[in-house]
Amino acid sequence: MADLDRLMNLPYALAAFQFSDRGELMSSRIADDCPLDDKALDLLCHMCVANTAIATMQARGWERITATEGFYPIDGFTIVGFEWSAVTSGNFGVVLPNDQADYQAAYDALAD
C-alpha cells in the first residue's frame, strides 16, 4: 500500500493524501511552499472519487457494448489542471506541478 511520506518523496510533490471510499480526506502531507490546505484537498478527494465512479460506469458500459476488457474496474483518476496535476489510485493521491510531473512514477508509487 502507498504511504504518504513515500509519495512526498516523488520529485516536486506538492501534496500527498489518503481518502475514504466516500471521498473524505483521511490524512495528508503538504509541502511548505504549497498553497493547498486540508479543506482544498478534501474537496479534491471528493472530486476524484466522483470521477472514478463516473469512469467506472463508462468502463462498464463500454466493455459491454464493445465486448472488450481492460478498462473495468477503473483504478485511477488524474486531473491535469492548469498548473498542477492530481494523480489518484485506490485511496491515495499525489499533487504534482504539470511541468515536472512524472505521471508514470506517480502511478507506480501509488500502486506499491
Binding site: 463516473i54 460506469m57 463508462q58 462498464r60 458500459g61 463500454w62 459491454r64 457494448i65
Partner: peptide, 10 residues
C-alpha cells in the same frame, strides 16, 4: 451528458 451515455449503453 450522463443520460446520453446511459441511453448509449442501454
Amino acid at each position: 451528458g450522463n443520460a446520453d451515455q446511459l441511453s448509449m449503453f442501454t
